[in-house]
Design a protein around this nucleic acid. Structure first.
Lengths: 129, 129
DNA sequence: CTTGTATATCAACAAATCTTGATATATAAT
DNA sequence: ATTATATATCAAGATTTGTTGATATACAAG
């Protein structure tokens, strides 16, 4: 399939645009995105795979965590992602960011959260402990 | 739905990219696009409606013909369309263009073609007769 | 080695999108 | 008026894409 078509297909889903917007300020691990969305983990993995498959994000494994970040190696895709980030009002993602922060905070405090408690998580990407 | 999402959805179909590429050099009527694709007319109408709905093309009625052209009123969309046109190799659309020219020629010569013969078509957009 | 955690993958189902033959509408020719 | 044409719309089926609970894999902790 045409590369451009693949890119547009990957971008034509609200969840995936939300993920890209969440990655605006740097990489996040899957559990953080799951927490931000407040939804099932397979769903997030599915959409991350779609983004990765289209060359829009890159992943990095660290221990048992998988970190995702925006792939800026292609100028056109980079431009598209930038346009998306600029276009989606922060307001829209407010709830996502709130849940993300809440998750990150509780991870640091060692409170067991849905899927990623510090208790058994070793060097957690968020708190680094 | 977000305008950007709507745009990406409209662009994530091969037929619609093909149509945009065909419109590169100016407007075409539905019957010309149908001829270029060598496919059913409802299919083309469906995809043209999708493009129009996303603000990517404009239409213009003239007699019983409906002409479609690229809508350049939004800068971002215009840029996307330009990128598509530049990116799709002419080679890919060769057959479409061949069928289009064949159709236009036969229309001018008055040879009855699939759906748009000059015989009963009055001032045909292609031949202007 | 056993247990718990993070993530991916799978299978079944659900939802959205596309295709196609049939039909409706508008316009023009006879 | 009747007939033919261009296009849109519709309904049914086909295909694609997304969701979700279950399970597999890999890693780290104890």
């Amino acid at each position: 399939m045409n590369e451009m078509l693949k890119t547009f297909k990957a971008l034509s889903d609200e969840n995936r645009l939300r993920i890209l917007k969440l990655l605006e300020h740097g990489e996040l691990c899957v559990c953080e995105i799951v927490a931000a969305f407040g939804t099932g983990q397979p769903k997030i993995s599915f959409h991350l795979a779609a983004l990765k498959n289209a060359g829009l994000v890159k992943d990095r494994k660290e221990g048992k965590w998988m970190h995702y970040r925006i792939d800026g190696s292609d100028l056109f895709k980079r431009f598209l992602i930038l346009s998306i980030i600029e276009n989606i009002p922060d307001e829209t993602l407010k709830e996502d960011r709130r849940r993300l922060e809440e998750f990150q905070t509780s991870a640091i405090e060692g409170i067991a959260v849905q899927r990623c408690s510090r208790k058994a998580a070793g060097r957690h990407p968020t708190c680094g402990v």
